[in-house]
Design a protein around this nucleic acid. Structure first.
Lengths: 237, 237
DNA sequence: CGTTAATTTGAAAATTTTCAACGTGCGTGG
DNA sequence: CCACGCACGTTGAAAATTTTCAAATTAACG
């Protein structure tokens, strides 16, 4: 088995625990999680498997479902008329995708699996129907969507070095919050995709990553990353 | 009267029509708009006046209300520990602010008026109460928040020139959608703020803007901008 | 193993940043 | 009323960073 695939499991060693998922509350109030324990992680919702490189959904497609990532990582991308893609964000287990569905009726970006991924699919009609019954579900939905509209700073800010460190620190932090190891993980992204996300060139990303490696701030081996002494640097350096 | 203030009126010549506001549906279903016509634009909701440079709300403050901009422009900013600010976005009449309120309970950024502004304030408890009565209001709220969670590309992408043109074209388009003149408007932002938003330096912004002026793509006079032949340039140039 | 894709590295070109100076408009106070 | 200071914008030139183009190296996969 190739080293990269193996390492990929560091980021998603198994299905995320439902309790760490952003959709948890909505699922529960909607009556979707019948049972889950440490031994048997079942979901009563529909599961959808996505092969690496395949799309969970595409821009403009009728949006009928909300998704939560159960396993694997996905990227949100815009593909412009010329065919080149712009990575908007990457998503880890526990993240919710397709939140724009309610307002737009169609998805607003492509969601592409970076590794073999498994997503929980919650049909919108189901949510609509359930929320007529449960006042609480409606409010949970509002809270979920509200959290999604927090004005964010884009990772593509500052010097190339700042962009890379900010990205890595952010990813590490997010993984930790989901119960994964934030100090040792695998980048599901190629240098090109990373460059795209950070709004720079793949050569620049490569150089910057290598430099951080030389400085022993991180330990990189292809896609696998180990955080050693990486600290955010707001202005200095 | 200084020229800049005068020109500022181009962007917000008067209160926006409620029908062009993102909050319109929610207001209506909540029973807030008793009457509005071309002659008398009244709102039954509470109005809040914000002086230029003053804050509508601050990061971390308890979030009790949702706001819609009625007149004037505001910026969302993050202020870091060092005290320097990062402009996240600018908002024009009809935009809704404070959507993160439901999920977080506190505001996630500072909202600062760029000009004297008037905002409609809708208390969250009111919305909560009303939505227990109206199924429709709850759904409208979900749709509003859903539209706010569309994955966006940041304006600070590509070359300095692309950033400036993208920003101007986007702003023009948004103004048009709200019923204002997108071909002639006033930048509520200083060069510094613009540089901050576009993730570059004020000198670079100044040079780029002047260059577009020389090329007759736009006609700039301080803060007032007239779009002449500005077109988006995805890759070339 | 050999072939192909991905990554790393080098060096010149281009862009952006930095540092500094200059100009303008506006309010203040002589 | 006018000089002055101040904030803001513009402009210039050197320094720094990033991009580009090219080649070399490494990893992936049949």
């Amino acid at each position: 088995m190739p080293a990269r695939q193996l390492a990929a499991n560091c980021a998603a060693p198994g299905p995320i625990a439902c309790r760490s998922c952003d959709l948890n509350e909505v699922c529960r109030l909607g009556g979707l999680i019948a049972f889950e324990n440490a031994r048997t992680r079942h979901s009563t919702g529909a599961l959808r498997t996505v092969a690496a490189g395949a799309a969970l959904f595409r821009t403009g497609a009728p949006a009928n479902s909300l998704f939560a990532i159960r396993q694997g990582m996905l990227k949100s991308v815009h593909v412009n008329a010329n065919g080149d893609e712009r990575v908007l964000a990457i998503h880890i287990p526990g993240d919710v995708l397709g939140q724009e569905a309610f307002g737009l009726g169609t998805y607003a970006s492509d969601a592409i699996a970076l590794q073999p991924a498994v997503c929980c699919e919650v049909p919108l009609p189901f949510l609509g129907h359930q929320s007529t019954r449960s006042q609480e579900l409606g409010m949970a939905l509002v809270r979920l969507l509200s959290r999604g509209s927090v004005p964010q700073r884009h990772p593509g800010r500052g010097s190339a070095r700042e962009r890379v460190t900010t990205f890595l620190l952010d990813l590490a932090q997010r993984l930790e919050r989901r119960g994964f190891d934030g100090r040792r993980f695998t980048l599901g992204l190629s240098r090109q995709e990373l460059a795209d996300l950070l709004d720079t060139r793949l050569e620049t990303v490569s150089r910057t990553v290598q430099r951080l490696h030389r400085e022993r701030a991180i330990c990189v081996n292809g896609a696998s990353v180990q955080m050693l002494s990486l600290a955010s640097e707001p202005d200095s350096a």
